[in-house]
Design a protein around this nucleic acid. Structure first.
Lengths: 250, 250
DNA sequence: TCGGTTCTAGAACAGTGTTCGTGACTACGA
DNA sequence: TCGTAGTCACGAACACTGTTCTAGAACCGA
């Protein structure tokens, strides 16, 4: 079924009416629901990235006007939260294993980053957002269990959930920004820093050695490693640090 | 000296001209410079926060139009970077002390956060930005020296600079967002989470215990502590973790 | 059927960063 | 000194953002 569109002009005393075929087939008009809005957001984000998800683009995707969305969601921020809940539901936290709790934690953080990579830019919405979605809460529950299996104190476990989430989302946001700047990298892949690293290294090496002896002599080390290397280092620091300070928070 | 403004209307065949006094005294027209732009940005941010710094608000502050700024800066992003450079110059890193290298690192991170707190919202611009300003480079040099004094490997030291900066700016961004949401907290102060924590705690306690045994029973621990407590935990984890994994990165 | 409520959606608001085009000014070379 | 090219200043306009207001349509229950 093709929906008709009417177009009209004023030509002197005459009003000209033309009935034009619609741009695209319009099925039976379906009522909006929150689920449909989130589906549209997920679809748009998969196709064009997080930045392309606006109230207008959502409305267009749903064949309506942006104002219609506000009957179902309070704000764009709520859409963002719903999207994050949807994404968070994809994360699976394994049952705790006391002999490998630390590797399990590291793997959860890797899985988190991978999740954000699969939904480019979505980490931006995660920053500053209170984790109240089911996905986030389940992840939290799983991480607490793993920490318990590793003998970590409850207070340290609790605060580690925040710390880890903040770190991973910060890295994911940085990666998303770099991907945008470096359009040669396919969405979802590890950003390619090669050209950027070379420039940064050259800049560091060109600084006055009297003022920056360490930065200039270590430009290579400063710019070594790709995103995964750096993330692995961060994850190793976080998990080892957790084990080291746990007793101070009992 | 008061600058005149002309205002005109069309009234039938007549054009009415009125000369009005200017809104405010306009001194001798001063040429724009990058420094003046950054000064204006710093002033606006101090008064109204980072979000209030737009090309239009800057132009207004400088008594010109937004398009004029583009003769001196390439983009808003460049303004952001210049502002961050200005801010970064405020950070002082102490000379290294081998006996207290760890506390020195922790103090640098605290000072970083304090800096961002003094410039609310500015951390947003820091995320994803390559640290090429003099302030950032000096901080890096200082941190490398402190890590050296503590016997940390060069590679671990190098990557720690990134990790620490990412963590601090993520926390600063979160705080800035919370400050915006909780308008009762004065700019620059530690955000007050009391009401929010209560709500979050109640939510956690209300979850189904069968599915969330740890979250529900530990709602109190999960929501304990203020921003500084959590930040101190994070800093302790980072520094202890660095010491623990350093040898693996030699 | 009728009335109240909710939904839909266009128009408009207030704002964002940026580009385009024009006039004024400045610097430089003949 | 004059002419020309380059730079700066800046209004108008572009394309976009999230959101509100208002009117008509749709839905639902009595």
């Amino acid at each position: 079924m093709v929906e008709k569109r009417e177009k009209s002009w004023q030509a002197g005393p005459l009003r000209i009416r033309v009935t034009l075929p619609g741009d695209e087939p319009a099925g039976p008009k379906e009522r909006l629901t929150v689920d449909r809005i989130v589906d549209a957001a997920m679809s748009l984000m998969a196709e064009k990235g997080y930045d392309a998800v606006s109230m207008r683009s959502l409305a267009k995707e749903l064949g309506t006007g942006p104002a219609s969305l506000y009957a179902h969601v309070a704000s764009k921020e709520e859409v963002d939260q719903l999207v994050l809940d949807r994404i968070g539901a994809e994360l699976h936290v394994p049952a705790p294993d006391a002999d490998h709790w630390d590797e399990q934690l590291r793997q959860v953080l890797r899985d988190m980053l991978a999740l954000y990579r699969r939904h480019p830019g979505s980490a931006r919405a995660a920053i500053g957002m209170i984790p109240t979605g089911m996905g986030a809460l389940r992840t939290m529950e799983g991480m607490l269990a793993i920490c318990d299996a590793g003998g970590i104190s409850p207070q340290a476990s609790a605060w580690f959930c925040d710390l880890a989430a903040a770190y991973v989302s910060a890295i994911a946001v940085e990666e998303a920004i770099w991907v945008q700047r470096d359009n040669t990298t396919a969405s979802g892949d590890d950003p390619d820093h090669t050209a950027l690293d070379e420039q940064l290294r050259a800049l560091m090496e060109s600084l006055p050695a009297a003022e920056f002896p360490l930065v200039t002599s270590r430009a290579g080390v400063m710019t070594a490693g790709d995103g995964d290397d750096r993330f692995e280092f961060g994850v190793a620091v976080l998990v080892a640090g957790l084990a080291a300070v746990s007793e101070k928070y009992r």
